[in-house]
């Protein structure tokens, strides 16, 4: 059970050299209910990564308040960064297991490697992987920690369509098995509709929430392209402000 409330009054990057002060986020209020799957959609450079970093607790230089509610303990966070961020001097498998507690179960790692088609590559060093493979390793690392909050920053770019579909199915499968709060950043509206309970549209900087839209397509027909497409068309019609974003 991990609900997150975000109330960021101001997040600015200080001026450095020629570049002036950049106001990245202004008055962003979001409430992210426990165990919901939310997709963040917004133009490039609007501050999505900045927001995820703040929620992950990596960036504390902002004014406002984030509460990540958790019953007794600090919530575990799984974060698929926009770049893979693997340790180049550790193998694929070590990269995954290092993020786990010492008493982890090797079988879960095996299973994840298998579904991501990385069993062959598990003892390879990351510099010898393709970008798509590195991304999959980063995704496994985030899944393997059994997160209470899963943050994913455009995780499926540079994956081919079939692999992306497979990883999407895995993600949804894992999420249904063991519910947790997911924040998923994407540029791809179809992908967002296929995955999310709720879509959150974000404005160009300073970033604010433009609108929040529930996706009411039942989970069992989410792989139906026509349903997704119909939802998308209707969305763009009803909300002209969103069309400008994309």
């Amino acid at each position: 059970m991990t609900a997150i409330t975000v109330d960021i009054i101001n997040k600015s990057y200080p001026a450095a050299g020629q570049a002036g002060l950049h106001r990245a986020i202004a008055n962003l209020k979001l409430s992210l209910p426990s165990n919901e799957f939310m997709c963040l959609v917004g133009p490039s450079g609007c501050g999505k990564t900045t927001l995820l970093n703040i929620i992950a607790g990596l960036d504390r230089d902002y004014s406002g308040e984030i509460t990540v509610e958790q019953q007794h303990k600090e919530p575990k966070i799984g974060y698929v960064f926009q770049n893979p961020r693997l340790l180049p001097w550790r193998t694929v498998r070590e990269n995954i297991t290092l993020a786990l507690p010492d008493d982890y179960d090797p079988k879960t790692v095996d299973a994840l490697l298998e579904t991501m088609q990385l069993t062959q590559a598990q003892h390879v060093y990351p510099e010898r992987l393709s970008l798509g493979m590195s991304r999959r390793v980063a995704i496994i690392r985030a899944f393997a920690v059994d997160p209470d909050v899963l943050l994913m920053d455009e995780p499926f770019v540079s994956l081919d369509a079939p692999t992306a579909r497979q990883v999407r199915e895995l993600l949804i499968g894992l999420w249904q098995q063991r519910p947790h709060t997911v924040l998923f950043v994407t540029h791809d509206l179809r992908e967002a509709i296929a995955l999310a309970d709720r879509l959150i549209f974000l404005s160009p900087p300073p970033m604010q929430a433009l609108s929040e839209i529930r996706v009411d397509i039942p989970r069992n027909i989410r792989d139906d392209e026509t349903a997704i497409e119909a939802f998308r068309q209707k969305l763009l019609q009803d909300h002209p402000e969103i069309r400008e974003l994309l």
Partner: peptide, 21 residues
């Protein structure tokens, strides 16, 4: 810095961070 952020996010202990990162 990216890797250090990663270790903070996944709660690597001090020793683990020193040794592996």
């Amino acid at each position: 810095k990216d890797l250090l952020e990663m270790t903070r996010c996944y709660r690597f202990s001090k020793l683990k961070t020193l040794r592996h990162v």
